[in-house]
Every structure is written in C-alpha cells, then in structure tokens.
Design a protein around this nucleic acid. Sequence first.
DNA 1: GCGCGCTCGTGATGGTGATCACAAGCGAAA
DNA 2: TTTCGCTTGTGATCACCATCACGAGCGCGC
Lengths: 238, 238
Amino acid sequence: MRAPYGLYILDNCLTCPVREEHLFCNLSVQAGQRLNEIKSTAVYPKGAMLFIEGQQPRGVFVLCAGKAKLSTSSREGKTIITKLSESGDVLGLNAVVSNRPYEVTAEMMEPGQANFIPRESLLQFLKDNGEVALRVAQQLSLNYYTAYEEIRTLGLTSSPSEKFAKLLLSWSTKSPQSDGSSQVKLTLTHEEIAEIIGTTRETVSRLFSDFKKKQLLQLKGSTLVIRNRPALEKIVQS
Amino acid sequence: MRAPYGLYILDNCLTCPVREEHLFCNLSVQAGQRLNEIKSTAVYPKGAMLFIEGQQPRGVFVLCAGKAKLSTSSREGKTIITKLSESGDVLGLNAVVSNRPYEVTAEMMEPGQANFIPRESLLQFLKDNGEVALRVAQQLSLNYYTAYEEIRTLGLTSSPSEKFAKLLLSWSTKSPQSDGSSQVKLTLTHEEIAEIIGTTRETVSRLFSDFKKKQLLQLKGSTLVIRNRPALEKIVQS
DNA sequence: GCGCGCTCGTGATGGTGATCACAAGCGAAA
DNA sequence: TTTCGCTTGTGATCACCATCACGAGCGCGC
C-alpha cells in the first residue's frame, strides 16, 4: 500500500515486522485482533506534531516507522528534549491513563507512521484485558524511572562536558564493536544535542572540538566514532 | 500507647485521624481490615532512614506522623531533595510495584511514625483488591507528573532566584491569607532549601537578603511572611 | 555561665558557560 | 553553477554563581 513521503503503510498489526517486542505486541490472538480494530493508521511528514504539551489527551500513538522527539518548553522558548522515540514506542500513555494534559510535545524527526488509539477505546480495552493493563502499569513505572534518571542528570550532573560524555556513552552502548570502539550514525543537529543535555549550540560545537582533540571521538562524514570509552566513563564518574 | 521520642503510637488504621484523604484510606471495611493486618507500625527518631536509594524494595511506608524528605545523591556527595512528605503520604510505592531499587532516600526530618507494608503482602493485597490497584496506578501516574514538574524546573528554570521564587510561591499557596500575603513556619535550613532548588547554602542566604531588601518577604523569628505574590510571579514568569 | 556544634551572613575571587557576532561549510533547488 | 537557508566553528566579552574563608549568632547540655 503506497503512501505519501515515500513510505509503505503497515496496515496490519498482526503481521507488523516490529511485533513481538513491545507494549502492545505479543498479545493473545483475541486481544491483538481487538486492538487492530480500534486503532487507525496515519503517515506523518518530518516535523509533524503528534501532540503538543498541554493538550488534553486524545489517545496514544504507537510509532510504527520513523523517529520522534519528546520535548518540553518554557514560555520564553527554551526547550529540552527528554526522549528520542523509535518504532515500537507508545507515546502519550501517561496522559491518557491519568487523563491529564500531555506533559510533552511529540514531533516527528523524519517521515514515519503511527497507529492511533483513541483514549476511550483504549481504556475500555484495558478494562477488558487485565493482563495488558498490568503491562501498562509496569510501563508507567518504567517511565517513572526514566524520568528520575533525567532528574538525576539535570540536578546532579553539573558540567556540560559530563552530560555530553554521558550521552556519547549511551549511544555507544547501542552499537558496541569488538575492539571496544563503536560507530553511530549522527542524525541530530548540534542544536538538538544541546537541547538534550541542556546547554547551547555553541557549547556543543566546542565540546565536539575538545573531545576530538582529546582523541575521545572522531567524525567520518556523519558517522561518529567513539574511540575511548574508559576515558568517557572517567569524565562521567558520578 | 506511649512510645519513644515523646510520641503516641497510632496503632489502628481504622481509627486513624488522617483517614479519609489518602491512598490507602477510605477503603471498604474488608480491605481496611486486611490492610490493618498486614501492616506493622514503628516510631522513628529525627534523621532515621526509612530506606536508601539503591536498596532493593522491602515494602512501602505510610507516613502517619512527622515529616520526611526524599532525596537523591551523586557519588561526590551532591544531594537534591525531590520531595517533602507529610503524614498520609505513601513512600516507596514505585519501587515496590516495579520491583526496582528505591530511586530515592527517605529520611525523617522530625520524630514520627510510619506503617510498613511488606512488598509481597502488598502485591497480594492489590491482586485481591482491584479497586485499590487502580488507585495505586493513578498514584503512580501522579508521581510521574510530579517528576516531570521537577524536570521542567531543573531543565528550564535557569537562575536560582527564579527557582527560589517558585518555591516561595508553592509555600504561599498552602497558607493563603485574606490580604494576599501569607505566613509559613520555616522549618528548613538554608542548606536544605539549597538542596531543593539545586544551589548552594551561601546563595540561598543571599537570596533571603535580596528578597528581604526588595520587600518580597519578611522574617518574624522563624515565621516567613510572603508579602508580594505578584512580584514573585513576575520573577517566575515561565 | 561557659563552651561546643550547627547554622547563618557576607566579602573576595575565579571559572565557566551564555550570549553576541560573524564567517565558512554544505546541501537542495532553481 | 549560483543562490539561499540551515548548520557549524570560533573568537570576544561578561554576568553569574560556586567556592573559600571567616566571624557572628544561637541553642543546648554540662
């Protein structure tokens, strides 16, 4: 099924390639079919907002393809990115369960696709499927722990360089190489990295320079090579 | 029933004066009695640690009397206080539900009393009492929102004075007076305030001086008088 | 009353990162 | 190719706050 933005629509969750791994995957046949009935699918361009901080929750989005960033902003325009989401992630769950406004804004970072499940349908579905409700509770609890990680980083990690090192390490663990180094495709702008670690674009630029000079990393085109994990860990230390 | 530290033990949740308002209060008679059976009560001196960040969860504590502070620390000893708890609050819920280590340390700020409910007993109790389980899920979700407030404060609020103004406002709304001012009994040291807003003791001291000079607040002994809410709101603005 | 421990006020100093400014790189579209 | 918009590198400047230092205040027990 051909769609805009050069994507193919994945129109059936029962045969979706990202099955098996995530919150609403690997359900019983009945539950899976029911879920397939109440969801609707849409394709989004880069920059599309799935929902915006402060809006009343309409439902949850299950990201099927593409990446999204979750962020929160102050009135003066300062923004922090709290999470980068990938396919399989469920967005807006907390707002829907608690019926409070979305606490973040979800914006597509590249063209992609998401299933939408309206709030009322989802809550009814959870009532009918206790085992899924339990998994949702566990997911919420996991979200809480992630939030606490963020609090710790923001409140206890003082210097930008420490936070930058932390970020690099988190990337590097996702693609470990046998020789201890690791390669990451760099898709974020300096501005976005700055919003993740809570500093300015210029400081990120300088951090790249410094770390390159110190042989901690290397740039091959848009591929980031992390060369010295132990040194990075020493910078983080806390 | 006389206890150490000059306190009287409240030994029956069914007749507890803080009933009716909190997570495990106002239950059905059966559930209340069951809860009364699986809990145990203890009295704690000032400075007692109910649990420590990183420990495996043993159970939850329901604070019956006294105040407690929840905090998290880095290895180098920097500490931030994430919440001040009062009687009725349930501590350690998230760790117990998700079976992950306590994410904070809970320390008594004054002599007090708490009920303890062991992890296994609580989980069984929740399985047997669906309606309470639901309330627990809602509480977790509320905790999540509180955590996000903290993230926003730490990540988007730049200056200590802004955070200090925010804190004063949060205190002031708890005791509004008819003339727009408000009075708060100040029980925290400057050091503790510093740990709440993420700065140093000296800076807090200077903030008090500044705000006094600017007629924003006044100190009568240990009573804090907040005089000019609108001005504080203008400082916060975001 | 006296001394001890904790808390508080405040000056001096220095480092760090935000801000401003501007030039250069780079990819996409015309 | 040229142009335009977005992104990146880097210098200069400066405000802000952490840190160190030290003395004063205050409560408590002996």
